[in-house]
Write a protein that binds this DNA or RNA. Structure first.
Lengths: 194, 194
DNA sequence: CATTAAAACTTAGACCACTAAATAAATATT
DNA sequence: AATATTTATTTAGTGGTCTAAGTTTTAATG
């Protein structure tokens, strides 16, 4: 939201482009519904693609999506309690516990109890866990990253701005739909609406 | 890919905008890695948002993501066999069967055996199923759609083009990673890489 | 025609992710 | 000290997903 590194490409900056896109839109006589349809369709394709990615990831890296996400958060943010992890991942405490169970069994993390407050548990990445983290995800995104690098600067900027816009609109949506942060009251699912 | 209704906003069409974005990029001294980071971050936020959506959907519409997706495909494409559904959803036959089992138990679909080829089964939406389909998903996307409609034409176009670009790059990726269509060899997961 | 192969679907067995509710332990509060 | 709150775990149940091993039906072939 108030992200310092936010691409703020708006009408002022991209004023010239606006005209071009507008003309293009007119030339194709695209209705509002058509556009929304296209947004949703391509959005779904993006989701689908990342989903397939993740599935492949599971085969390759031998960790599941949630497991990997958890490890990544651990790596980036360091010491966190279960509840904090749960909040970060939008999962319930219980779910995080079971995910941690599996990771612990495979010795990818260890549980370290806080000495100050013995209720708290700080999961720690093991060496083994860190190593998996290094190799796993990058391999899968390399292709995408390579393709992205090959784009023109303006196109890269456009994509970033668009994605941020979309994310923003979606977040706003979930926010005013549930004003109170409701950790762990949700379920698992896919994408909808063709 | 060769989609007739594809937004083909490229350098030729958006030439003017390119300069603006380029200048902007320069002014911020953004490195390639920074950009990729931003793409991945916002992509993940988009995924996360849709994920939360779907979770809420489950509460609201009383169907899960895959279940809804299946019913939507049924609604849009009509008669399909289990295998075709599986291919469409990138799932294994067996998985689709179990999803159908649950839908059938709740009387949202029925199984109709083909008379021509008695091996084939054509799942059909029941009246009850259709009704759920009507109300469920739109409610959730209304907010997003409303926001999208409020954008300028040029911005709508930009977003569509960007999303399609991203989807395309991702699909290309999954394609050359697995040249043969590999139905049902995958697992379930999340999004990764912060 | 009989056998074999292929296709479509289902079943069985095994995980993982998730939630809600119950429990246990530690800390805060009054 | 008694009670309440916080934090993490356990348990029970639902779903989604896969692979591998059946069925049943259809097509192919000798």
């Amino acid at each position: 939201m108030a992200n310092a590194s936010n691409y703020q490409i708006d009408a002022e900056i991209l004023g010239l482009e606006a005209k071009a896109a507008y003309n293009f839109a007119l030339s194709n006589q695209r209705t509002a519904m058509d556009k929304i349809e296209e947004v949703l369709v391509s959005l779904r394709r993006v989701i689908r693609a990342t989903d397939l990615h993740s599935k492949k990831l599971v085969k390759t890296a031998s960790v599941t999506g949630p497991q990997l996400l958890l490890m990544q958060i651990l790596q980036n943010k360091g010491d966190m309690t279960i509840s904090e992890l749960a909040r970060d991942m939008s999962l319930s405490q219980a779910t995080v516990t079971t995910v941690l169970d599996r990771l612990e069994k495979r010795e990818l993390i260890t549980r370290v109890r806080s000495q100050q407050d013995k209720r708290k548990v700080y999961p720690q990445l093991t060496h083994k866990g860190s190593k998996i983290l290094e190799s796993a995800p990058t391999a899968l995104q390399d292709d995408f990253v390579r393709r992205f690098k090959n784009l023109n600067d303006w196109e890269q900027g456009m994509i970033i701005a668009s994605l941020q816009r979309v994310a923003e609109m979606m977040n706003a949506e979930t926010l005013d739909a549930s004003p109170f942060l409701d950790v762990g009251a949700l379920d698992r699912g896919e994408i909808e609406r063709s």
